[in-house]
Simulated assay, not measured.
Amino acid sequence: MLKPKIYIDGQAGTTGLEIVSRLSTREDLELLLIPEQDRHNDQVRKQYMQQADLVFLCLPDQASIEAAKWIDLDTKVIDASTAHRTDPKWVYGFPELSIEHRQKIAQSKRVANPGCHATGFISIVSPLVQKGVLSSEQIIHCTSLTGYSGGGKKMIDAYENHKTEAMEAPQIYGLDMQHKHLKEMQSVCGLKNAPLFSPIVDDYKRGMLTCIQLPLNAKNLYSVYRDFYTNGLVHVHPFGYPANINANGFSHRDDLEIIVTGNEKQALICALFDNLGKGACGAAIQNMNLMLGIKETKGLQF
C-alpha cells in the first residue's frame, strides 16, 4: 500500500515545525517538504497541495481561509487556525467528545483542530452539559495558565532572549474579555452565554492548566468524568490530588488529565496538558491518524 502523502502549509511556524519534527520519523507516511525559498510562492504551494493526501494548514486565520479554497475537495485537510472551528461544514477535531464525534472525524475531509485554551475548557465543561449537570444557560468562570510557547515564535524569542523582570511573573492577557477561543468554547459546549475567561502566560515553555470552580459536590462530578472518558487521550485522575498541580506537569505529552478536587459543596476541576501536545500538534496528529485509518495513538506520547 502506498504511503499517504502529507503536506504542511506553514511548516516554519511553531505548530508547523513541531508537526514536521514529529512526522519526520514516521515510516508509514511520506512527508512533502516545500523548499524554504518557495514557502511564499502560491503556485508552488498549490502544487504541493495537489500532490498530498492530507494537508495541514498551520497559518494565520485569513491565510487558512484562502488556502483551503485551493485544495481539492477529495483531499483531507486539518486546519490548525481559528478560522473554521465553528464552521458547520468542518468537523471539530476533539474525538473524545463522543463515539459519534470520533466517527465524524474519521469520515471527514475537513477537520478544524481545537485551540489550546479551548481544549482545556471543553474537556471540562462539555461532559457536564451533555449529562445535564450544567445548564446550557450557565455562565462559567474559567482561568487558564499557559507556557510561553503558546504565543508563537515572537513570544518564545522574547522569553528566551529578551526577558524583562516583568516577564518573570505571570501575566494576565486578553483583558478585553474577547479571546479568540471563546467562540469555539461556547459553540462546542452548547452554551448560550460566552464564558468569563482569563488566560495567563507564565515564565515556562510548555504546559497548560485550565480550571473552573463550581458550587457542586466534587465527588459526584468526579464520577461523571470517570464514566464519560473511557477511551482516547483524555483520562481522569483518581479523586483528589496529593500536592500542588504544576502547569507544566504534562509537558511533552499528548494526552490530557482531568483532575477533580474539593468537597461536598465546592469543586475545582482542572485540565492538565501540553499546549503544544493535546492543545495543538498532538491533537492534529491524532486527528490525522483517524482520518487516514491509522491507529489513533500512533506517534503520540502519553
Rank of each mutant, 00 (worst) to 15 (best):
K3T: 14
K3V: 12
Y7R: 06
T14G: 05
T14M: 13
G16A: 12
G16M: 10
G16Q: 08
E18F: 11
E18C: 14
E18T: 15
V20M: 15
R22A: 11
T25L: 13
T25H: 13
L31D: 11
L32W: 07
E36R: 15
R39D: 08
H40S: 15
N41H: 13
D42R: 14
K46T: 10
Y48G: 15
Q50Y: 09
L54M: 11
F56P: 11
L57V: 12
L57C: 09
C58K: 09
C58P: 09
L59Y: 09
Q62S: 14
Q62E: 15
E66N: 14
E66G: 05
K69F: 07
L73K: 04
K76V: 03
T82C: 08
H84D: 06
T86N: 10
P88Q: 09
K89I: 07
K89G: 13
Y92N: 01
P95R: 01
L97P: 01
L97W: 02
L97Y: 01
H101C: 00
H101N: 06
K104R: 01
A106D: 00
N113H: 02
A118N: 03
A118P: 02
G120Y: 02
I124C: 06
S126Q: 01
S126F: 04
P127K: 08
L128W: 00
L128D: 00
V129Y: 01
V129A: 04
Q130G: 00
G132N: 00
L134E: 00
E137H: 08
L145M: 11
L145F: 03
G147N: 10
Y148A: 12
Y159R: 10
N161P: 07
K163F: 04
T164K: 08
T164C: 03
A166F: 02
Q171C: 10
Q171K: 14
Y173P: 03
Y173M: 04
G174S: 05
G174W: 00
G174Q: 02
D176A: 12
H181I: 08
H181Y: 09
H181L: 07
E184S: 14
C189S: 11
C189A: 10
C189F: 02
K192G: 13
A194K: 14
A194G: 03
L196Q: 11
S198M: 02
I200K: 03
I200A: 03
V201G: 04
K205D: 11
L214N: 01
P215Q: 07
L216F: 04
L216W: 01
A218M: 01
S223Q: 13
L233N: 07
L233S: 10
H235F: 11
P238F: 07
I245A: 06
I245D: 02
N246V: 12
S251G: 06
H252Y: 13
R253P: 04
D255L: 06
D255Y: 06
L256H: 03
E257S: 14
I258S: 09
I259V: 15
T261Q: 13
G262S: 07
G262Y: 01
L268F: 05
L268D: 05
C270E: 10
A271F: 09
A271Q: 10
L272V: 12
F273T: 12
D274R: 11
K278V: 03
I285L: 14
Q286A: 05
L292C: 03
E296A: 14
T297E: 15
K298F: 04
